[in-house]
């Protein structure tokens, strides 16, 4: 398997309790990996250890390695802002920045000095809004505040904003949980269309969504990885009792 992210002996402690126990994983390149499991199993914690968001909480301690293309992102000489630029995050709820629709997309480009001149910015904003399927809805109101959009539109704007800074990996933390069914479907479609260019990791507790999206599945329970494998393996022929139980709706 051509893996993009490798996790080795990852342990995460929150205060005195252990949130992740000795995780070893590989996440395949240019596929959608779904992390699933019952709530409180550590799936979001695992996801947030990929972009070092786990460090935002000062109570947490981390040991082990998370390697992206063979480079340990927790090594001392690593720039955390570069890590987060390379690994984008789509959060549970959309949080548009307090600026216009246009500026939301242009903001990251400006911050990382990736474009110059109005023309380049205009093109980039249009391109990424198109990728996120939002362009036609907002092209006449680009300079209105982003908060004037509906929640579903806001989430697609957040996706466009993340894509604009050209990440290699996209993390989704239950990205449709705050959305209506139609908007959810919309997001799912976009994610499917993006996997040829990006490695995507999505956390979800919705089994049907996992089945629709996943190429590769990680099943977690109580801070441990119970089973990981291709979607076919996990959904059609799970090896572990817990996985079988979860898939049949026991918990």
């Amino acid at each position: 398997m051509n893996s993009h992210i490798q996790v080795k002996n990852l342990n995460v402690f929150y205060g005195k309790s252990q949130a992740l126990k000795n995780i070893n994983l590989e996440i395949p390149r240019n596929q959608i990996t779904v992390i699933m499991g019952p709530s409180g199993c550590g799936k979001t914690t695992l996801l947030k250890s990929f972009n070092r968001f786990i460090e935002l909480d000062e109570m947490t301690r981390i040991s082990g390695q998370v390697k992206v293309d063979e480079q340990d992102i927790y090594a001392r000489d690593i720039d955390v802002t570069e890590v987060r630029k390379t690994i984008g995050l789509l959060s549970q709820r959309p949080y548009p920045l307090p600026m216009s629709i246009y500026e939301n997309v242009a903001h990251g480009l400006r911050m990382h000095r990736m474009k110059k001149g109005k023309n380049e910015f205009d093109q980039a904003v249009q391109h990424y809004l198109q990728v996120a399927g939002l362009w036609d809805e907002v092209k006449d109101r680009l300079h209105e505040p982003a908060t004037s959009l509906s929640i579903g539109q806001q989430q697609r704007l957040c996706l466009a904003r993340g894509l604009a800074i050209e990440p290699e990996i996209i993390l989704g933390d239950e990205p449709t949980s705050a959305l209506d069914p139609i908007s959810s479907q919309h997001i799912e479609k976009i994610l499917m269309s993006l996997k040829k260019d990006y490695t995507i990791v999505v956390v979800t507790h919705i089994l049907r969504q996992a089945k629709r999206l996943a190429d590769y599945v990680i099943f977690m329970y109580l801070g441990e990885v119970v089973e990981a494998g291709t979607a076919q393996q996990i959904f059609e022929d799970p090896q572990m009792e817990r996985t079988k139980g979860y898939l049949s709706g026991q918990f």
Partner: peptide
């Protein structure tokens, strides 16, 4: 991939 820290203006 350049994850290593380069002292850019924003870091200063």
């Amino acid at each position: 991939m350049g994850l290593k820290k380069h002292w850019q203006r924003r870091h200063v």
